[in-house]
Design a protein around this nucleic acid. Sequence first.
DNA 1: TTGTACGCGTTATCAG
DNA 2: CTGATAACGCGTACAA
Lengths: 342, 342
Amino acid sequence: MSGMTIKDIARRCKVGVSTVSRAMNNHPDINPETKEMILREIKKANYVPNNSAQNLKRADAKAIAVLVKGIDNTFFSELVSVLEKCAHEKKYTCILQRVDEMEDELDVALQLVREKKLRGIIFLGGSFSHPKEKLAELSVPYVLSTIYVDAEKQGNCASVAVDDEKESCKMTEYLLDLGHRDIAILTARREDESIGKLRLLGYQQALSRHGIPFDESLVCYMDEKTDRYSFRSGYRLTRQLLERGRKFTALYATSDTLAIGACKALTEAGIRVPEDCSVAGFDGMDIGEYYNPGITTIRQPVEKIAEASARLLFDMIKKKNKPGHEIFEGELLVRSSTGEKR
Amino acid sequence: MSGMTIKDIARRCKVGVSTVSRAMNNHPDINPETKEMILREIKKANYVPNNSAQNLKRADAKAIAVLVKGIDNTFFSELVSVLEKCAHEKKYTCILQRVDEMEDELDVALQLVREKKLRGIIFLGGSFSHPKEKLAELSVPYVLSTIYVDAEKQGNCASVAVDDEKESCKMTEYLLDLGHRDIAILTARREDESIGKLRLLGYQQALSRHGIPFDESLVCYMDEKTDRYSFRSGYRLTRQLLERGRKFTALYATSDTLAIGACKALTEAGIRVPEDCSVAGFDGMDIGEYYNPGITTIRQPVEKIAEASARLLFDMIKKKNKPGHEIFEGELLVRSSTGEKR
DNA sequence: TTGTACGCGTTATCAG
DNA sequence: CTGATAACGCGTACAA
């Protein structure tokens, strides 16, 4: 029997519908015995309340959405997984929504909130440069996770991330400390306004601190529409870099995936890692530990980031907390893909 | 203005609510001009229908769910991504739900269908041995994607997969053809009733065809609760295997992730891949192409599998097609992690 | 072609 | 403590 309603239960139990409702929703004003009896009957009848009706009544669905830009980025997989788990624990429905690279995530969010009456949103990936007025239309609290935000944050906007610029600087300085002076970098598109930009900035900062001039011929920007933080792009970009002929003794790829693609390109070109060229990544994905050679990287505490994102969102939803902004510390993992300059 | 309803639009347009409804739902009985006008107004007012109300009325939400067992398995990431995209194209909502390893996915599905009035489900991962009667309770069509099914399929159950046993046999025969006789295998738990079992079966079949006795001391089963198709488990299992002292010249890991973990363990033990030991994987994940050495593997056509899953589901939902069962051909990708026995 | 009115299943209010 | 009843926003039969 699938089309069971609260009325059927009420009838079976010989009580009113409101009593059944009270039993289900832990209302105080109900006789414990009646409640017991009703709950037993519900279980027996295998009755499950119609979520749509609940939401219609509540005018506010017990649901959040996770909007992911670039879901193919494996770095997000674990993030999404943990987020779903957190939502589940709170008995929230989690709606996963991809956002195409060229789509406006805010439009998608706005639409989704109205349509689904969401209580909150978590944005993953992409940049986030939207006009204030439009941002103000987003009536539910939201968390920017792993996203660079330029403007001052709004009242209902929390954020979680590592300090990409600082961490990137840390990595670059590590390479500098190894004696490298000609450090190539694989980075996002030139127009990037997101973490790609920050990581590049960190690189520049480290160079300038050490009095080394920034050399554009060492910078390899993603340029094709198809370029992502992927193995393939890392490979393609590195080959492109090698063709330039500009010498370098270290290559800083701004993601582990890029780094791995880079290693392949270098190896194919007869360049040994790390003997002839050090390679460093970013993110701290598992594969970096198992790759051969192990990839030196900055580990982002993924689980912590995911949990914090969920926590901040639910805090805002429930206790109307003022939104927090958490910055996690990245960890420099030195492995065998980097070594002293020879 | 967020609390906009169909009535507000009707008022603004000076028409009845049903006319607005007709305009939105492409009903035939409506004056094209009126429709134009209403749609324009809707856009201008930024009105989005309340999905819960629609669903309540329709008694059938325009939504499907993807239930994933072991979402951390990166192999599923792309699958999920493509599925979401397909659903989106059909204007369907896609609900993502993890299922814990120990949870009963059918229970979860049953609950979800009633609660959300789903139109269909796609199951990913895990085994699927459920009593017929319980399976019959699942009133909506569903697709088993990348899942081994023992029992005859029900009337509303489609399936998509590669023939794991055959493909596994193919891989094993490839190793045999290279001259290997002592082929170790990394496989799922001994009690596994899913693809793990099939892949082991394919291995055994190939051996027996070549008149080579099956040797338990070459089989390494996952045993810990924490074991998965992960790099870590591949590493752990291989070390365990090496401790046994049983010699082998090839190692067949039943997933690329396991294979990569295995390579690390072997390398650390001073065993060169492929010179001293060939290593083969399964799945055809991108990383296998970029790993050093490149991992010989069986490529599953992930995109095709995902698209077929979506297609079969929507066919069943819409045209009440009889459920299809598609088997895709895997592709043996020979890379540098395997070589002739020396 | 259009508008009115009812009901979907639930929760909340209010009177018993 | 309990039960009747009014919303919630939408789709649709039915009447115009």
